[in-house]
Design a binder for these strands. Sequence first.
DNA 1: GTGGCACAATTGTCGGACAGTCCGATTATC
DNA 2: GATAATCGGACTGTCCGACAATTGTGCCAC
Lengths: 235, 235
Amino acid sequence: MSDLFEPLDDHPAYRQIANVIEQRIVERSLRTGDPLPSETDLARQFGVNRSTVREAIRELETQGLLGRGRGEKRLRVTRPEPRDVSSGVSRALALHDVTFLELWEAMMAIEPAAAQYAAVRRTEAHLRELARAGARFRRNAADTAAAVSAVVDFFTAVAAASGNQVLALSQAPLNLLLAPTLTRLIDRVPQARKRIGEAQGRITSAIKLRRSELARTWMEKHIRDFKRGYELGFS
Amino acid sequence: MSDLFEPLDDHPAYRQIANVIEQRIVERSLRTGDPLPSETDLARQFGVNRSTVREAIRELETQGLLGRGRGEKRLRVTRPEPRDVSSGVSRALALHDVTFLELWEAMMAIEPAAAQYAAVRRTEAHLRELARAGARFRRNAADTAAAVSAVVDFFTAVAAASGNQVLALSQAPLNLLLAPTLTRLIDRVPQARKRIGEAQGRITSAIKLRRSELARTWMEKHIRDFKRGYELGFS
DNA sequence: GTGGCACAATTGTCGGACAGTCCGATTATC
DNA sequence: GATAATCGGACTGTCCGACAATTGTGCCAC
């Protein structure tokens, strides 16, 4: 029952150009930091109009493959940073109406693992980040928005300390999804603040002491608490 | 030590327009499937040139927020699918030179969880997908590329069966990263094929029998095996 | 070397233009 | 009456040319 012919998708020039440049970046013949030729020059090289080149460039720019420093005119090759990419992922998930349960299950899979590896690989700098996020959470007991942002920073710091870029990048979108729910949760469940603070403290010290199993266990409990809080606050 | 003023980044018109349209999509005042006004019309509404509108559209298109069916001319609002988004993530990771260990640790966190939930939520359709990927792997013992693609499909099918879009979307980029390593692994380690086939069988039947703990355990063993194979083949 | 300045280069945006293709309506055919 | 051929309008992909604003650069004076 399979068709005899496949539908041939045409590739507009701007997409072809984007693909070619992307290829060059991925195979590193264009290296991070290299300046891109000017639009006029690219148009000449590809034999197309500058407008067409511009459309191609916009694609690569949104993917984080091209960018420019503040106040810089020429584009340079850049490596897509987690924030470039994770916002897209979390927006995609939001548009798919993910439930809190789905988010929670994913956090339950990723965060404890991150905590475990963080206990093994953390540096002093990582510890400082963890301490700073924890302090910021405790300090902002009143300001909900600041507290939520501190929680996000704490998770981010744990993921960074894990020394695993894949885990870090997998975890980043979860934070963005967590924020709105967490905001309402903290406001509705009075004991949430205290429990989060305690958990952060335990996790931080486990990571500091390089007790990886302990770090994992405390993180698991921490995440489980989110679900309990959610059920308490949104039932 | 924080600066008094933040650097104000200028917002070119094409970026502003992209943001406005994105906003409309995220807040669902433009709903999935809605056709976008024509470029000429958008240019008129925003009071800019059509070229400017086109650049904005390119951004949204690459993010998977806009798209068009084959052979369709007008753009429509679309929801970004996993494949739209995960390729960007895995390319980002590739450019950051992730190690096999990092990838493996992330798989170790995500895949067993996916298997566990799959055993609970799988439908008959999911089982068919799993069986099909497994069969395709066993059938293509000779063709390495086909075998690798079947392994990827198997993982994808497990993630889909988990009924968790967050896990599925977190897992998708890992597949793309796994493929190249797995290709060389299968070629270098003779017993890999057999072990993968067996593991897939055990996982599939655990999911079929709704034995969630068993599914998780077998998946863990399966992933562990990848590391053993890697150490065997690349030492 | 350092600072400053004029000039060239580059980006962002504009207006207009045209071929190719898709869509909807109208007309012709069985 | 239903289906097929026809036609005009609408829309996209691409091109050309242009200009203001801003950045990069070479040169000159100190």
